[in-house]
Design a protein around this nucleic acid. Structure first.
Lengths: 224, 224, 224, 224
DNA sequence: GATGAATGAGTATTCATTCAT
DNA sequence: TATGAATGAATACTCATTCAT
């Protein structure tokens, strides 16, 4: 969903596990990511997950503390995997192009799956405090990384310092996730190219903004 | 969530109901909206809803075809109610100001509740085809209305015709909903004012864009 | 298990229930009493109880808050039923005879069942605070009633006031319950007649005690 | 719980074990005794027991045939340990004093633990035939020893031969265990001193009984 | 002797929904 | 139209036990 710059966060499991256990673990996580995205977190039963993986539900609980942990790990793994799908050519380009690329590839099945997974995770987290706390770190970490990248971009491009880069990043990520919500609601969405073009245009305007009257871009209108 | 211009869509129930039945119905819908938003669609049981409204679960099934219909009606009612909260002063202003206002009032409890309700509805709709079909019309209707308003704005302001107004509207709505997702995931969000300022700046740049080289805003970068 | 004098405690359910619900309720309670006594509280599953009563487990949860409440009600009902089994001829006799009767009928199936049920309830209550709190009242009520009867007996017989009647009652009831424990452990128990004779002899000695040197019966030996 | 005279029954495991294995074994048994008494036999999981002892569940099954054997051994060990807690000064005194001492020390934590353990064992044995058979020997052995001691007391004191000493012992032990049941049920129990005084008084009456009309103590009342 | 991954059978409980009254 | 007793199917989770390593 969001791209992270070099500062890689360790996704390695905290405890050392035997290779066999690790294999089972990642197989389960991958399966869970798919099942939760496809059938929903509530709709995918632990038993089904187990039998689909050739195990029993007991085996799952020997590896994960519960369904929620499985979801959290699925989210972590899926986000990490998503980062690696950015083509080198895109990564080499300017940041606005990278941002726009995210929207141009909206229809990519893997990205759609991640969007769905995050949607499910968000709803699950609404009534599961520990899960929310667990996901919070992952999400904020990505947001931080992505914001840092945009800060660098701003410095390099001499963009109006009044523009809140954190807000911009959150806006972009939100739009991405929100498209998932809208899609799930059955909304007819414009094609990805249109989005990408729009995003590119908006970001380009930021780059151009400072060349003109800097005052215009920072001030918010006031309401009653 | 989204503002609609005058062309009001009928939210009235198809059949004529006695006033008492209507009162029961809307009380139930209001209660459901609150419960689904607060405790989640899955987390709020029909029984609880019933007892909280002084009825029995059987009575609910005499009024609604099922839990899903209750959700759909709750969504309809909540969206309709949201539209009426826009202050006249804001409505009288320019469109970008209205858009920005939506983000400036992100923390408004009623709007937060609506965001949560739509989130829940989206997840429920993912595995409930009839529900999705039911919600689709509501959502697309709002999107259409809102797009029409922006098209009018574009014509009035002479904005670059290459800018896809439908995409812009969907982007704004998505960002709104996506903030709900991010919030549910525990993300630390910038304060609403920052968002509003950013949105205002971006929309202003569109208005300014055509004054310069129109070519710049329409072209999307190309990727491999 | 214990006999109560006239002051009848209301065993009636707090809320008014429809006759049908009441019928289902008592059928379930009777069944549960038997099943818990026979197969143990842990060993009798709610599902089995349900199917044995021609219902589904859901129906049970519509009537009782949970398995523990079913147990508590089974205990209440069984104790109440036990009280009514004391033959009028016994009730008309002197208290020591009534006490001894309890031990003479140790083998009575209904009493054995009650003993088993209380054993199961005790173990269940050890790790279920709400259940313990619920049972506490029932048990203490019986103990109080029984103690009052013995206090009256003491007054009538002019028994040494130094004898703690509450302790005596608790001793008798404990012995009864303890025989259940011992029996469950496989101990070879003397026949009921022997117990009854012993109890009668001990109680008779209390009646005789005051005729002699009252000092002897009250003082406990002292230990290091 | 019950005191045994010299004739010590072998509690040693049938097979010779290495010292290390023996140490592991007894550590496990002690741990199990505590856990079963505290959390209940059903409530204490083998896994917890294992991890609490620094082992794995597999290791436990290398040492014991199953959870039930662990319980049986815990019972044996706890009873044996209980015997050794009787102070020499008490042992040197008359039997009634020893009996009364058991009740005077009702609140002793170690004795309370043993009572709880036997309660749990009794309930477990109710639906586990092999376990009951296993416990039966331990329990009957203790009862036999204790009865022999009382028989000797009777002979020495010239107590009415009509008094069934086995019944008396069982009564005392039952009362002890039954107090555990009553306590678990939340009953308000008199303080241990009262019990001890009562027991002492009752036993003293037996010693005095034969000096008078021996006829009175042996005959049980007859019931319809 | 010990590990720990896996089993498989089981549990209490919940809930949307139905239908006779 | 409302009731509420009942359904039936599903669910997450636990645990004693086994066995290849």
């Amino acid at each position: 969903m969001w791209m992270p710059p070099p500062p890689v966060r360790s996704t390695a499991p905290p405890r050392r596990l035997t290779p066999k256990a690790q294999a089972t673990r990642s197989r389960l996580v991958a399966l869970a990511a798919e099942a939760f995205a496809e059938e929903g977190y509530a709709g995918a039963s632990v038993r089904d997950l187990a039998s689909r993986s050739g195990l029993t539900s007991g085996a799952i609980y020997g590896t994960f503390r519960g369904k929620a942990e499985l979801l959290a790990e699925a989210v972590d793994a899926s986000i990490a995997a998503d980062l690696e799908t950015l083509p080198g050519a895109v990564l080499a380009g300017p940041l606005p192009a990278i941002d726009a690329y995210q929207f141009a590839t909206l229809d990519d099945p893997a990205r759609a799956r991640l969007r769905a997974l995050l949607l499910e995770a968000a709803v699950a987290a609404r009534s599961d405090r520990p899960l929310r706390d667990r996901l919070r770190d992952t999400v904020n970490g990505r947001l931080d990384d992505w914001t840092a990248a945009h800060d660098a971009w701003r410095a390099a491009q001499g963009i109006d310092p009044a523009v809140d880069m954190r807000a911009l990043v959150v806006l972009l990520v939100s739009a991405d996730l929100g498209l998932g919500v809208l899609g799930a609601l059955g909304a007819e969405l414009p094609d990805p190219e249109s989005f990408a073009a729009l995003i590119a245009a908006l970001l380009a305007s930021l780059e151009r903004g400072h060349e003109r009257d800097g005052a215009s871009s920072g001030g918010a209108p006031t309401w009653p």
